[in-house]
Amino acid sequence: MSFLVGENIFGGYGGADILHGCTVSVEKGEIAVIVGPNGAGKSTAMKALLGMLTVREGAVRLNGNDITHLSPQDRVSEGMAFVPQTNNVFAGMTVQENLEMGAYLRRDDITETMEQIYSLFPILGEKRRQMAGELSGGQRQQVAVGRALMTKPSVLMLDEPTAGVSPIVMDELFDRILEVRATGIAVLMVEQNARQALEIADRGYVLVQGENKYTDTGAALLADPDVRKSFLGG
């Protein structure tokens, strides 16, 4: 039994189903990546795990507990953290305030966590008094991830963290995500840059039309000629 599982999920945003029996899971200290063509329901699958859409059938379990009917806010307090694809920082607040807001639900001392994040993302420490909106795209993504980590989550979910950033920044971000994994957090990502993402993935899911098409380790998927041909451009 994995740490976070979405099992056989059917559902959508009120209209027709977008997910048709999709199953995704991730273990602590692992990176799982969801890839697939446009419109395959990758982000939708992640939002289903977070409770941002109506799950008509199937179940979401966190650490063995059924959380299918919890609100997103309640899941956050259960230890799930989410980094949206866009608008994922408080642009009018400083980097430090962004991190503080990430820890809004915590009542204990957050200075230690904040120091950990500054050591994980040194650039944020340097710019802690700057407005997040004034930072570069890559730095902003770091703020976004940092904000999500402030709750000391057990699962970190990232919706296309590398969308719109340069290849160098992308590599750096992936390095950081590997470091996050090293702290024992379960990481679940949706990615457009499928090849690079699968390279760091422990598990990979190839979604097509809301269904699992291929499921294997990242390396195995990269090696699979069918997957290469259809989804990784040869």
Binding site: P72, P84, N87, F90, A91, M93, M101, Y104, L105, R147
Partner: peptide, 16 residues
């Protein structure tokens, strides 16, 4: 929290 809510409502909700 008020500033955060004013800045980015969705993210504020996600932050609890």
């Amino acid at each position: 929290a008020m500033r955060a809510y004013s800045d980015n409502e969705d993210l504020a909700l996600l932050s609890g």
